[in-house]
Amino acid sequence: MHLFILKRLLIAPFLLAIFSVIAFVLIQAPPGDFLTSYIAELAQGGTSIGQEQIEALRQQYGLDRPTYVQYFVWVGNLLQGDLGTSFEWRRSNAELIGERLALTLTMTTISLIFTWAIAIPAGIISAVRQYSGIDYVITVLNYIGLATPNFLLALLIMWFAFDQFGVTVTGLFSPEYVAAPWSLARVADMMSRIWLPALVLAVAGTAEVARVVRANLLDELDRPYTEMARAKGLPEWRLVLKYPTRVAIAPVISTLGWYIPRLLSGGLVVSVVMSLPTIGPLLLRSLIGQDMYLAGTIILLYSVLTIVGTLLSDILLALLDPRIRTA
């Protein structure tokens, strides 16, 4: 087991190196650089900027150097813990990303808990009571959940809350806490609001996970080991939860690794609609403004989270299934 984790930890740096190249290539891919979009923006505002000044800026930002040099400077700085500076915000990336990342992770985790807490029981009930009334109800809800774009759901909830209770549910903080320093009261305020966007984000995932659990469990319920457990005299619910369910939820756990980045990007539209200070809108803005080091750092962070998520799901799977542990 320890060897199993160690092996995966050893692979991680290599994966990260590959991802950093891909991230860098991606952010270099659009034509032009930060300065071209900066100049274009200035021009739109009616200001123009001299050629000399442009060259000076280009040198200052290191944009005149060959691409591979830029890459190694970036990676070198990253390795020293320096996440670089945002061109656009003229602040350090670490500062820009820090709080947003924490908020995003909190929201994602809560959303994941919602998803599993709702979807796994729903899938189990749906499978055990196949073709019953409750199965049909869950199935219909699932399809509605899958088919509803989550930003639309967010809009509907915002409208409903405002119309019925006169409450604005946008943002993660009440107005008095937006700029306040961290305190227990601020955390409490955040928790009182964060569950709503988390729930909105969880809806589509819930529907999907419930379908996967239902389909897998239906297969496992017909297996001889399920019948054998019944032939031993085990009560039905106990045997369903102990034997086939443990097999049926493995695919759900194995997708934990993708779940995190998917929520980060999937949450973008919801974050924009609900004005949430999460990382998605920051990435969007940095891509539009060709704020390359900020964008690259965020993309690389997504990769790190994916690797961590996958490692986590591998460990969970190994705990669940001895065949993985001993392989």
């Binding site: 080991y225 009560p235 065949r323």
Partner: peptide
């Protein structure tokens, strides 16, 4: 459920598939 396993027990056809692989 008291009778199953307690009074009448099953020896199934496929022992491989009849044990849970996870336990």
């Amino acid at each position: 459920r008291e009778i199953r396993g307690g009074d009448i027990a099953l020896i199934p056809q496929e022992p491989m598939a009849s044990f849970s692989p996870l336990h």
